[in-house]
């Protein structure tokens, strides 16, 4: 049996986590959604879970979203797509996202439409 693909969401805000998870599940992706509450935990989980897509918040206590993304990308043999999802859109942040190796950068809106579009554009 083919394993379901896995999504990992890294965000320190419980509300955002739940909403993002709902949005992804409602959008009908055939995937299991996992969550991590901070960057360090997220990086560890990437090693174990081998998710396809990781969604990372920018502002988190401990290592921020860009550092988290860099760390995930620097681990060899892990072929993940990282989307940085932020509350504030900003060209400098978009540049940082790119520099950290992110594959996507999008804004958090109330229904996470931008995030869903971004994920869809990757498949």
């Amino acid at each position: 049996m083919k394993n379901k693909s896995r999504f990992l969401i890294v965000d320190d805000d419980d509300g955002d986590l739940t909403l993002m998870r709902n949005a992804i599940e409602t959008a009908g992706f055939d995937a299991d959604v996992y969550v991590a509450k901070n960057g360090e935990q997220g990086v560890e989980m990437v090693d174990d879970l081998k998710p396809v897509t990781v969604i990372v918040d920018t502002n988190m206590p401990g290592i921020n979203g860009f550092e988290t993304c860099s760390l995930m990308k620097s681990r060899d043999k892990v072929n993940i797509q990282v989307i940085i999802c932020t509350g504030v859109v900003d060209a400098v942040d978009a540049g940082k996202a790119r520099a950290s190796g992110a594959d996507g950068y999008c804004v958090k809106t109330s229904n996470y439409e931008a995030l869903i579009n971004e994920i869809k554009s990757m498949f």
Binding site: T86, R98, A114
Partner: peptide, 18 residues
């Protein structure tokens, strides 16, 4: 990279306007 960042930023701003 600059193009990517500007596209993503524009898309984000558009989304926020919406």
């Amino acid at each position: 990279d600059v193009q990517w960042a500007s596209e993503k930023t524009n898309a984000g701003i558009k989304m926020l306007y919406k």
